[in-house]
Amino acid sequence: MASITITKFVHLQIPLEKVLEATNNFHHDNIIGHGGFGPAYKGQLLRSGELMKIAVLRLDRKHGEGDIEFWTEITVLSDLKHPNLVSIVGFCDEKDEKIIITTYEARGSLKEHLNSSNLTWTQRLKICVGVARALSYLHYDEGRGYGVVHLNINSSTILLDKNWEAKLSGFKVSIKQPVNRMDQVVLSEPIGTIGYMDPTIEKTKGVTNKSDIYSFGVVLFEILCGREAYMKNEANRFLARLAKYHYENKTLNDIIHPDLRNQTSLLSLVKYSKVAYSCLKEERTHRPDTNSIVKKLEKALELQLRRENLVRPIF
């Protein structure tokens, strides 16, 4: 991998001393999160004469993550450019340190805001549309010749910028596939986060782009219900199972975040919950593709905005 580093990624290399300077020697006050990869820090880096805010992911060897994940993330992020994907600033591979530097997203992860009363239904819909567009770009972008199966879609890898725009991150286990083979099974161990994992991985011994769709369906219900996908000490630990049960019994209202009940346009909610439910279908072939998910979520947002314009007082 060293030779590839020197040639293809030389423009992304950032010296360790600059990273230490940017994060105040990885000061614990600058920690903004802990992922499977290791701790993430915020910092400020001087680029082209301007101070920019950055997020610094520092590989923690104790977590058993390694070089493959590190290089996968760099390779994928350096190739991809989309308004709803996190942007790579650079990386550092020096003195036993492996560090990935991306743009800093001011609002942190979606997970931190799931239960927030301040995050309106309209904002939540816009976040969903953003993630769906990012997924559509990963799976089907014509200009690339290959698709990317993310395999790590969850409310922690969806970051939010200061305007609440979604930025998808966390590409360390993603897989590249020729575009015409996106729906073919890639042999794989069960990869992902508990509560979001495609249940058919065990059966088929592998993943497809429809594995991302399942995980995204779980996120859609997290956003609607204001709770996490997996809650260890709850009777209904797994949100996917709970959401499917209530959807099928037409009692979804019982688990929707209480603050959202009065905000949602009924038509918007029907459209949204239908697409969320279809993402969780047991059979992969019955799950929708990302392009149709984008259209349906955009429609749910449009119906919501139409209602808001009707109910907003006019002075």
Rank of each mutant, 00 (worst) to 15 (best):
M1K: 05
A2F: 01
I6K: 07
Q13W: 01
Q13E: 15
Q13T: 12
L16C: 08
E21G: 04
T23Y: 01
N24W: 11
D29W: 00
N30I: 01
I31A: 11
H34F: 03
P39Q: 04
A40P: 00
R47Y: 15
R47I: 12
G49S: 06
K53N: 09
K53V: 04
L57E: 07
R58H: 06
D60Q: 13
D60E: 14
R61N: 10
R61M: 14
K62G: 14
K62W: 03
K62R: 07
H63W: 02
G64Q: 04
E65T: 07
G66S: 10
T72K: 10
I74G: 02
T75F: 10
T75P: 00
D79K: 11
K81R: 12
K81V: 08
N84Q: 01
G90S: 09
C92L: 04
C92G: 07
D93I: 01
E94N: 02
K98I: 02
K98D: 05
I101V: 13
T102L: 05
T102H: 12
Y104Q: 07
G108T: 07
S109F: 05
L110N: 08
H113W: 08
H113C: 07
L114H: 08
N115A: 14
W121G: 05
T122C: 11
T122Q: 06
R124K: 15
L125Q: 02
G130N: 14
G130D: 14
A132L: 13
E142L: 03
G145I: 03
Y146W: 15
Y146H: 02
V148C: 04
V149K: 01
V149R: 02
L151H: 06
S155L: 05
S156E: 08
L160Y: 00
D161G: 06
A166C: 02
K167L: 05
S169M: 06
V173P: 10
S174G: 02
Q177R: 07
V179A: 11
N180F: 08
M182G: 04
M182E: 03
Q184C: 07
Q184M: 11
V186P: 02
L187P: 06
E189F: 06
E189C: 13
G192P: 11
T200F: 13
T200S: 15
E202I: 12
K203N: 12
K205I: 10
K205W: 10
K205D: 11
V207P: 10
S211Y: 10
Y214G: 05
S215L: 14
G217F: 15
G217T: 04
V218M: 14
V219I: 12
F221P: 00
I223G: 01
C225D: 05
E228K: 15
M231S: 00
N236C: 00
F238L: 12
A240V: 12
A240N: 04
R241L: 02
A243F: 15
K244E: 00
K250I: 14
N253F: 08
N253A: 01
D254C: 03
D254I: 14
I255P: 05
I255Q: 13
I255M: 08
I256T: 12
L260T: 09
N262I: 07
N262W: 03
Q263T: 11
L267R: 09
S268W: 12
L269K: 02
S273C: 06
V275A: 10
E283K: 13
T285Q: 13
H286S: 11
R287I: 00
R287H: 04
D289H: 10
D289S: 08
I293K: 09
I293G: 06
L297N: 08
K299N: 13
L303R: 00
R306E: 15
R307K: 13
N309D: 08
N309A: 14
V311E: 15
P313Y: 10
